[in-house]
Amino acid sequence: MHALQTTSLRVADNHLFILDQQALPQEKRWLSADTVAELVGHVHALRVRGAPLIGLSASLLLALLAERGANRDQLAQALETLRAARPTAVNLMNNLDRMKQVLAQQTFVPALTAEALRLIDEDKQLCDSIAQAGSALVTAGSRLLTHCNTGGLATAGVGTALGVIALAHQQGKVASVWVDETRPLLQGGRLTAWELGELGVPYQLITDSMAASLMAKGQVDAVWVGADRIAANGDVANKIGTYSLAVLAKFHDVPFYVAAPQTTLDPLCPDGDAIPIEQRAAAEVTGVAGSFGTVQWAPEHAQVYNPAFDVTPAALISGWVLDSGVVTPAEVANGAFQPK
Rank of each mutant, 00 (worst) to 15 (best):
T35A: 11
R118G: 14
Q101W: 04
L24V: 01
A66F: 00
A70H: 11
R83I: 04
G41Q: 15
N14F: 00
E122G: 00
R229T: 02
I18M: 11
L103Y: 12
H169D: 14
L82S: 04
R183H: 10
A70W: 07
S32R: 12
R29I: 12
V295K: 15
F292L: 15
Q303L: 13
Q77N: 05
V311D: 13
E115C: 15
Q204F: 01
L4K: 05
L39W: 06
Q105C: 08
N334S: 13
L16W: 01
D253P: 00
L137I: 10
N94Y: 00
L199C: 04
V321A: 10
V311K: 08
D310I: 10
T35K: 15
N306M: 11
A89E: 12
A140D: 15
Q74W: 01
L79W: 03
E331S: 14
A168Q: 04
T155I: 02
R47M: 04
L248F: 00
W320C: 14
L322H: 04
G241A: 09
A3I: 02
A333Y: 09
C269Y: 02
D266Q: 07
L31M: 08
M215I: 12
D235P: 04
Q204D: 04
L24M: 05
A12W: 01
Q105I: 07
V311E: 14
V177C: 06
V285Q: 08
I130C: 14
H42W: 03
A227E: 08
A63M: 03
A330E: 15
Q106W: 01
M210T: 10
L92S: 08
L62N: 11
F17A: 06
L112Q: 03
V247R: 05
Q262C: 07
L75A: 05
F292I: 10
G241S: 06
E198S: 14
D228K: 02
Q74I: 00
L145A: 05
F337Y: 03
T312L: 13
P255H: 08
L4A: 03
S142L: 06
Q132W: 02
L205F: 03
A58Q: 13
R49D: 06
A23K: 07
V225D: 07
M99N: 01
V288A: 14
R29N: 09
F337W: 01
I275F: 04
E122P: 00
I230M: 09
M93Y: 07
A302K: 15
L265S: 13
K173C: 11
D123C: 02
V109D: 07
S8G: 09
A216H: 06
P276E: 11
R98T: 06
V40E: 07
R29K: 13
G50W: 04
A232T: 08
Q303E: 14
S8R: 05
L162M: 10
R47W: 01
E181P: 00
G41I: 09
L153Y: 02
K100S: 12
G141C: 12
A336W: 03
L56N: 08
Q303W: 05
A282S: 14
A308Y: 09
L53D: 10
L24Q: 02
S57F: 01
I230Y: 04
D310A: 10
L64G: 03
A23N: 06
S244T: 09
Q262P: 02
I165D: 08
V90K: 07
T242M: 04
I317N: 05
